[in-house]
């Protein structure tokens, strides 16, 4: 793919409708060989983007879900102790080999358990590495990622440095619960993914719910835009929740929305009781169709 437009078309063809920004990010990430750091509120299609990128390249998607307390043995690699012990005991029984040979044997690749980062690096097919919710890592653990992100290699003391056979496309996501370290950010292209523009959201709905009427889709998008910006919500409706609502309306064969129907739809869009209550209260006090 030699232009951002072609990337956009490719993403579109696998069912992900990109904005210019997203297409440019994917394009540049490939050309510059840099990871993309996608930041933004939950439910704006960050993880979905990684999946779509994997689909267009026909690549394997390897996912590292971050959480507090994630360590090397979960992210990079681990030695298979059980197998190593068995090998030692077997060698003792046979009593044939010297200690050095045993040692060199048990610290070989045969006894290495690959974790997502190493797996992504050693994969000989094309790979998309998704590092999900990086902001949940502690600052210290973030450093684990740096070697992989900039040099695409992993150092294992007993074996040496493992270089990437084929450089994976790396996508990191963050919900911005904390500021990531400068070192990490410097290595990445920074893509902010907010809620989509009205036109884009309408197109997404039309794509995912093909038999929805255009007018209804526009109305949905208007309502959701209002909810996102005018009501102070704990969690604003995500794109997938809007799609769910659209689907529900099509199934129920509702063509026009009135006050009561909008209120019925709120539990699909909003996931906190408080949010639903405050949205209901506010909608009752304003002029709503029907």
């Amino acid at each position: 793919m030699s232009t951002p437009q072609e990337v956009a078309q490719a993403l579109d063809s696998v069912g992900y409708l990109p904005s210019t920004e997203i297409a440019a990010a994917v394009f540049l990430a490939q050309k510059l060989g840099k990871p993309i750091l996608v930041e933004g509120p939950a439910g704006t299609g960050k993880t979905e983007l990684a999946k779509a990128v994997a689909r267009i390249a026909n690549a394997e998607l390897i996912r590292l879900q971050c959480y507090e307390g994630l360590d090397e043995s979960r992210a990079l690699y681990e030695w298979d102790y059980q197998k190593q012990l068995l090998a030692i005991q077997a060698a003792k029984l046979a009593d044939a080999q010297s200690e050095e040979t045993i040692e060199s044997q048990i610290f070989s690749e045969k006894y290495l358990l690959e974790r997502p980062l190493l797996q992504a690096i050693r994969n000989s097919d094309s790979t998309v590495l998704l590092i999900d919710e990086v902001d949940r890592l502690e600052v210290e653990t973030e450093a684990l990622l740096l070697e992989v992100l900039s040099d695409f290699q992993v150092s294992i003391p007993e074996i040496g440095t493992v270089q990437a056979i084929r450089q994976p496309t790396v996508i990191l996501t963050s919900n911005n619960t904390r500021e990531l370290s400068e070192a990490l950010k410097r290595r990445c292209l920074f893509l902010y993914l907010g809620y989509p523009s009205k036109d884009r959201e309408r197109d997404i709905i039309a794509r995912k719910v093909p038999n929805i009427e255009e007018q209804l889709a526009s109305k949905l998008v208007e309502i959701v835009a209002y909810l996102r910006s005018e009501i102070d919500l704990k969690k604003a409706p995500s794109i997938s929740e809007v799609i769910d609502w659209a689907q529900a309306l099509v199934v129920l064969n509702i063509k026009e929305l009135d006050q009561a129907q909008i209120k019925q739809g709120l539990p699909i869009l909003l996931k906190y009781v408080d949010d639903i209550e405050s949205a209901k209260a506010q909608l009752s006090s304003v002029n709503v169709p029907g």
Binding site: T3, P4, Q5, T20, E21, A23, A24, A25, F27, L28, K31, L32, E39, N176, E179, E182, K185, R186, L189, F190, L191, Y192
Partner: peptide, 29 residues
């Protein structure tokens, strides 16, 4: 890097131009 990026994306589309610069130069919401 911004210069390289611009060479890659070209100058045909104003929007792509802006977004590319933003991707490379901005690191914080």
């Amino acid at each position: 890097e911004a210069l390289t990026a611009l060479e890659l994306v070209g100058y045909e589309s104003a929007e792509v131009f802006r977004e590319s610069l933003k991707l490379v130069l901005v690191k914080k919401i």
